[in-house]
Design a protein around this nucleic acid. Structure first.
Lengths: 195, 195
DNA sequence: TATTGATTTGAACGCTTGTTCAGTTAAACC
DNA sequence: GGTTTAACTGAACAAGCGTTCAAATCAATA
């Protein structure tokens, strides 16, 4: 058994994923060919099939890994003492997490329709799980009497849309720091649901 | 000069635009071929070139017409007596206008990167014009002392993202009426910026 | 009815697509 | 140094791409 270690696949594998991530985020799934991904890696198109069964899997695995990262990172946060602190934690976490992964976030929002129905269902379930966590926080705040929210499901969508929107305009090298942006959004989110 | 009236182009022209709108919204610009658009219209691919110089123009004209409709509709609204009423008017207008044009809105947000740089710049300018109107309302509210907004530009992006997000989940046949949704969002928007 | 010209067809152009696979290369083991 | 085999190449496949254009079609005018 030759070359069980030091094999190129240890290097090429991640490079394929990285190239796919960057190119799809930039040009869109349909506009990126396997040959372009291969060229970015410095390899012929056929070699990609040592690392992915097909193009669809490349997209799905990018999105699944991203959503799994999101759920795992979120689960590792400490419990919050009350609903207000939980909402603040969620708000800051969401902005910070997403702003550090612009390519993944872009793909996760733009390329849903390029997933097969089965893959779409799996990603959608993870998204619903995440949104459910925010909804639970809002309901908890209503019970505690600190939030006034007529429709927790609608408020959840409103807050998530607002927070995810940061990625459309925030730039690391811009006028405002991410900390400053966090403050502004937390202030708006808090006020939008406070009783 | 034969057939100056009753020409088929009066009918086929709009049908090409409609087919392109529907197909691009559903599958994305890159995934929709001229042959698919032609098939939807019931014509051969070559015939499309009587109605558009190329595929890119089809996309651009859809987006430009949509943004122009938006700016025109917005301009036709009566002046508001104060900043709070102006913000309420903007909020309700945005939700109503966008919810009635899901395909156009979807394309306007998803297909920006498939525009040529020149066309992108033209669409982006129209978008900035629209966003500038909301920003002006927020600044007016700060001057009137009714709004507390640290960063009007950021608050503008936050509110627009929140409102446009309605299109991702609202369904005509769903549990909530559009009027009810309008109320919920106006309540949240108002609270998020009220002093 | 004959003519006109807008409209559409259907084939063709060169190029790209995702995927497969026999054959080549080269690194790590014995 | 010879053997093994993972990794990769390069060509091929059938299909589809945007676009062009000579020829055919056909409705309205004269």
């Amino acid at each position: 058994m030759a070359r069980t270690q030091g094999s190129h696949s240890d290097i090429t594998g991640p490079r394929v994923r990285d190239a796919a991530l960057r190119l799809i985020a930039q040009h869109g799934y349909a506009a990126v060919s396997m040959r372009k991904i291969a060229a970015e890696v410095g390899v012929q198109a056929g070699a990609l099939y040592n690392y992915t069964p097909d193009k669809q899997s490349l997209l799905f695995e990018i999105m699944q890994a991203h959503m799994q990262d999101l759920l795992t990172a979120r689960a590792s946060l400490p419990d919050a003492a009350d609903a207000v602190r939980a909402l603040e934690q969620f708000t800051r976490f969401h902005i910070r997490f997403h702003s550090r992964r612009p390519a993944e976030v872009f793909i996760a929002y733009m390329e849903l329709r390029n997933l097969t129905p089965e893959n779409f269902a799996r990603i959608e379930e993870m998204r619903r799980t995440y949104e459910g966590q925010l909804e639970a926080i809002l309901r908890r705040g209503v019970e505690e009497g600190v939030f006034r929210v007529a429709e927790p499901k609608v408020a959840t969508m409103a807050v998530i849309a607002m927070l995810t929107g940061v990625n459309t305009w925030f730039r690391e090298e811009g006028r405002l720091s991410l900390d400053a942006v966090e403050e502004i959004y937390w202030d708006m989110v808090r006020r939008s649901v406070t009783a």
